[in-house]
């Protein structure tokens, strides 16, 4: 005969096991979704992937279409975005952590503003880029306008990640440097940035990979869909991989879906290799410090 207590305990344990199974299947769902997504992309696109696909210009004929101009546009845009956004983001983080008076209203305003900017939809940055860079500053629909737009978009991410990294620098290290009569900026260069570098690097690369996958803000500033030349200067018009993929995805023909998938494979490979570089660099820095 089972007592009331025993029955109760059995019931509670059963409930617990059920929840465990439910939660575990949620995780499995996420994993399956990731696998399905990758399977879908690779099964559609792998057959279209070839050297000529990478070196050809886009075309009305799916068999001849390639991503050369989009790839070049992406590399140009992201290169400029890195040049603009990393110094600005790290500089702002250094200002907030090392120079600003943490209790002043100005610092609090800056922090609140950065947190809010991080939540602004990317398409809104596109409108800002359209109004300010394309029309007002007359950069037209150029790589420069695109890179500046993406810079503003990822700036909050870089700032927040860099701030975290700078905060993690132990204050005895800073004091050790100041006590030698070393100035603030020299201490930043000599102790703070080297120590915070892995964190800054990881955050920046994550932010830049986000910029690399963005299509919406660049569509807003009018990055054209059909570009059949390789850009030669930052003031040339351009397209990027995600926009090229978008254009192909919007076509009803199955062939275009396949080359869209091939384009996605290239994009994913680029993103993954950037993250791999981040991991390698981070490990290198960390080894040097231990």
């Amino acid at each position: 005969m089972e007592t009331f207590q025993q029955k109760n305990i059995r019931k509670r344990k059963l409930k617990n096991s059920i929840l465990h199974i439910v939660l575990a299947s949620i995780i499995v769902f996420s994993i399956i979704m990731l696998l399905l997504l990758l399977y879908q992309v690779f099964s559609e696109g792998l057959s279209r992937l070839s050297w000529s696909f990478i070196t050809s210009m886009p075309s009305r004929f799916p068999d001849r279409a390639g991503i050369a101009s989009a790839l070049a546009g992406s590399i140009w845009t992201i290169g400029l975005t890195i040049i603009f956004s990393v110094p600005l983001g790290v500089g702002t983080a250094l200002y907030l952590e090392e120079y600003a008076n943490q209790k002043s209203w100005w610092t609090k305003l800056l922090q609140l503003n950065i947190a809010n900017l991080a939540g602004v939809p990317s398409i809104v940055y596109g409108m800002l880029g359209l109004a300010v860079f394309v029309k007002f500053l007359h950069f037209n629909r150029s790589i420069l306008a695109g890179a500046l737009t993406l810079t503003l978009l990822i700036l909050p991410v870089i700032i927040v990640a860099s701030q975290e990294a700078i905060k993690s620098v132990p204050s005895p290290l800073k004091e050790g440097s100041y006590a030698l009569g070393v100035s603030k900026w020299q201490t930043i260069v000599g102790v703070i940035v080297p120590y915070a570098a892995p964190g800054i690097l990881t955050g920046s690369i994550l932010a830049v990979s986000r910029a690399m996958g963005e299509a919406a803000p660049l569509i807003m500033i009018g990055a054209a869909g059909y570009i059949s030349f390789l850009p030669k200067s930052p003031l040339d018009s351009f397209t990027v991989l995600p926009i090229q993929i978008f254009n192909w995805t919007s076509r009803p023909q199955a062939e275009f879906a396949e080359i869209a998938a091939a384009g996605i494979i290239v994009l994913l490979v680029l993103l993954l290799s950037m993250n791999a570089i981040a991991i390698v660099l981070r490990n290198k820095y960390q080894n040097r410090m231990d």
Binding site: P172, L173, E175, G176, Y178, A179, G181, R288
Partner: peptide
């Protein structure tokens, strides 16, 4: 202050060598 700290060195409670 740079001159001052060149003349007056400081050693801290916990060893704090740079990495």
């Amino acid at each position: 202050v740079t001159e001052l700290r060149k003349k007056v060195g400081m050693v801290f409670q916990k060893p704090n060598p740079f990495p």
